[in-house]
Structure formats: C-alpha cells, structure tokens
Lab assay of single mutants.
Amino acid sequence: DEIHIHFNGVTIEFRGLTEEAKKALEEAIKRGASEEELKELARRLIK
C-alpha cells in the first residue's frame, strides 16, 4: 500500500501507511502544508 503526493511538480512517495496516516497527510495537504512539513509528518507517521 503506497501513496503518491504530487506537490509543486515533485512526487513524494510513501509506502506502508495506515489509513489514519493517509488521512493525516491528506488533511495536511488540504490546509496547505509545505513539502518539508509533509515529509516530517510522514516520518512521524511511519515510525
């Protein structure tokens, strides 16, 4: 299970995320999180 985020022309790929983690990332994107914020969020979620 993986998710691809297209962000300002950059694709960020995450693997092994739970549904909750995906929802958290989607919410962050909707509120306009920066690419760095998304990566940091993903790091926290994957652990």
Results as ranks from 00 to 15, higher is better:
Glu27His: 10
Leu45Gly: 03
Asp1Phe: 15
Leu25Ile: 11
Lys39Pro: 01
Glu35Arg: 02
Gly9Gln: 01
Lys47Ser: 13
Thr11Gln: 03
Ser34Met: 09
Glu20Thr: 09
Thr11Trp: 05
Ala28Tyr: 10
Glu13Asp: 14
Gly32Thr: 02
Lys47Glu: 15
Asp1Thr: 08
Arg31Pro: 01
Ile5Phe: 13
Glu2Gln: 12
Arg31Gly: 11
Glu13Lys: 12
Ile46Met: 06
Glu35Gln: 08
Val10Asp: 05
Phe14Ser: 06
Ala24Cys: 06
Phe14Cys: 13
Glu20Asp: 11
Arg31Asn: 10
Asn8Leu: 05
Glu13Gly: 01
Phe7Thr: 04
Arg44Thr: 10
Lys30Gln: 09
Glu19Phe: 04
Phe14Gly: 09
Arg43Asn: 14
Glu13Tyr: 15
Glu27Thr: 11
Ala21Arg: 01
Ile3Met: 10
Leu38Val: 06
Glu13Thr: 08
Glu13Gln: 05
Leu25Pro: 00
Ile29His: 04
Ile5Gly: 02
Ile46Phe: 03
Val10Pro: 01
Glu26Gly: 07
Thr11Val: 13
Asn8Ile: 02
Asp1Arg: 12
Ile29Trp: 11
Ala24Glu: 14
Ser34Gln: 07
Asp1Ala: 13
Asn8Phe: 04
Asp1Ser: 14
Gly9Val: 00
Ile12Arg: 00
Gly9Pro: 02
Phe14Glu: 03
Ala42Leu: 13
His6Ile: 12
Phe7Pro: 01
Glu19Val: 09
Ile46His: 06
Val10Phe: 02
Arg44Trp: 09
Ile3Asn: 05
Ala21Tyr: 04
Glu26Met: 14
Glu27Asn: 13
Glu19Met: 09
Ser34Asp: 10
Lys30Asn: 11
Ala21Asn: 12
Glu2Trp: 15
Gly16Trp: 10
His6Met: 03
Glu40Met: 05
Ala42Thr: 03
Glu19Ile: 09
Thr18Cys: 08
Lys47Cys: 09
Ala42His: 05
Lys30Val: 12
Glu27Tyr: 06
Gly32Asn: 09
Phe14His: 04
Thr11Ile: 13
Val10Gly: 06
Glu13Ala: 03
Phe14Thr: 14
Ser34Glu: 06
Ile3Phe: 15
Thr18Ile: 04
Ser34Leu: 08
Ile12Asp: 02
Glu36Asn: 10
Glu13Phe: 14
Lys23Ser: 10
Glu2Ala: 14
Leu17Lys: 00
Arg44Tyr: 06
Ile3Trp: 15
Glu40Ser: 09
Gly32Met: 05
Ala33Ile: 14
Glu35Lys: 05
Leu25Cys: 03
Lys30Cys: 07
Glu37Pro: 00
Glu2Cys: 15
Glu20Phe: 06
Glu36Ala: 11
Glu2Arg: 14
Glu37Ile: 07
Glu19Lys: 07
Asp1His: 14
Asp1Lys: 08
Lys22Asp: 01
Ile46Ala: 07
Leu45Pro: 01
Glu26Ala: 07
Lys23Thr: 10
Gly9Leu: 00
His4Val: 06
Arg44Gly: 09
Glu19Leu: 07
Ile29Pro: 00
Glu20Trp: 11
Leu45Val: 07
Ala24Leu: 14
Leu17Met: 07
Glu35Val: 14
Arg43Pro: 05
Gly32Cys: 09
Gly16Cys: 11
Thr11Lys: 07
Ala33Thr: 11
Glu36His: 12
Val10Leu: 07
Val10Tyr: 01
Lys22Thr: 06
Ile3Gln: 05
